[in-house]
Measured scan of single mutants.
Amino acid sequence: NITNLCPFDEVFNATRFASVYAWNRKRISNCVADYSVLYNFAPFFAFKCYGVSPTKLNDLCFTNVYADSFVIRGNEVSQIAPGQTGNIADYNYKLPDDFTGCVIAWNSNKLDSKVGGNYNYLYRLFRKSNLKPFERDISTEIYQAGNKPCNGVAGFNCYFPLRSYGFRPTYGVGHQPYRVVVLSFELLHAPATVCGPKKST
């Protein structure tokens, strides 16, 4: 009989979020998941679920829940969905086509923008091939755009693969920082350890 609540607040209220190319993952297990707390949290810009209804989450049990978190621009949030393409979905964070879970995003301009620009948040701009679902690539190898080998030196046709967002408070909404948490639900042939409040007695 599990009684402790799942530590969703640790994920959602973290002081610093990860850059999207180096997205953070927390495994959540052996706890009671009260999703209504999240669902009623006012400032969400997006709360979209795939393969599961957000209002039914509290009735369900899962083997594991993974909480992935990172920061992207407002106009990139739409790429955090199954079957998407674009710089983020291709080179930074890719969801599987059969994704079961929820994508939760909110504007973090007050936290993550600075006058003069916040350059701490990076994304991958160049990559030889697209990421596989949930693949994480933190390499900083110089990207070779031409035929000539770069030998690890940036220059003509040789690019550092990461780019900084440089968030400023005055940017338009599409270019403002958004914090994103992706909850993915794993249902294995194993005992369920993460259940909603109704199922955990």
Rank of each mutant, 00 (worst) to 15 (best):
E135D: 08
A67G: 00
A22L: 06
P191V: 07
I104G: 00
N24M: 05
C150K: 06
V32D: 07
L125D: 15
N157A: 11
S129I: 08
A46S: 14
T201K: 11
F156M: 14
G116R: 10
G116Q: 12
A145N: 13
N58T: 08
V32I: 12
A190Y: 10
E10Q: 11
S139P: 02
Q79I: 01
T3N: 09
S69H: 02
V180I: 08
G174S: 11
R124W: 02
Y159A: 11
V32S: 10
Q79C: 02
A89D: 03
T85G: 07
N24Y: 04
K198C: 11
N87V: 15
Q144R: 10
Y143E: 13
A18C: 05
A192Q: 12
P96H: 01
G174L: 13
V32R: 10
N151Q: 13
C61G: 07
L183G: 00
F41Y: 15
L183I: 09
Y21P: 04
E135K: 05
G172H: 12
N75F: 08
G174M: 13
R127L: 03
I138N: 15
A192N: 12
R73E: 10
D97M: 10
H175C: 10
E141D: 14
Y171M: 15
F17C: 03
C61T: 10
T140L: 09
S113R: 03
I2R: 14
G166W: 06
D98K: 10
L131V: 10
N58Q: 12
L111R: 10
F17H: 03
H175Q: 15
I28Q: 01
K199R: 14
T63W: 05
N109S: 11
Y66S: 07
L125P: 15
F45R: 14
N157S: 12
P169D: 10
V20K: 02
K56D: 14
I72K: 00
N130P: 15
P7K: 12
F156G: 15
W23S: 04
K26R: 13
F126L: 10
W106M: 07
G86L: 05
A18G: 09
G101E: 00
G117R: 07
S53P: 08
T55Q: 14
D97I: 09
W23L: 03
G86K: 03
F41N: 11
R163T: 12
P43K: 09
R25G: 03
G86S: 03
F70Y: 01
S184E: 04
Y119M: 14
D9Y: 12
C150I: 05
G152F: 07
G51H: 09
L183E: 00
L187I: 14
Y143L: 11
W23T: 04
E141V: 09
L60N: 07
V115M: 12
R127N: 05
S19T: 04
W23R: 00
F12M: 11
S129Y: 08
Y21W: 08
K110C: 07
C102T: 00
D98N: 14
L122W: 12
S164W: 06
A33S: 08
R163N: 10
Y165C: 02
F156H: 14
N151W: 09
C158H: 06
I104P: 00
D98R: 09
F156Y: 14
D97F: 06
N87D: 11
Y171C: 12
F185S: 00
N64H: 13
D34Y: 02
N157Y: 08
P43G: 07
S184V: 11
K128A: 11
R127C: 05
S36H: 08
L183C: 03
F70C: 00
N87I: 15
I2D: 13
F17A: 03
S200W: 12
R124T: 02
S36I: 03
V182C: 03
L183P: 00
S200K: 13
N157I: 05
R124K: 04
P191N: 15
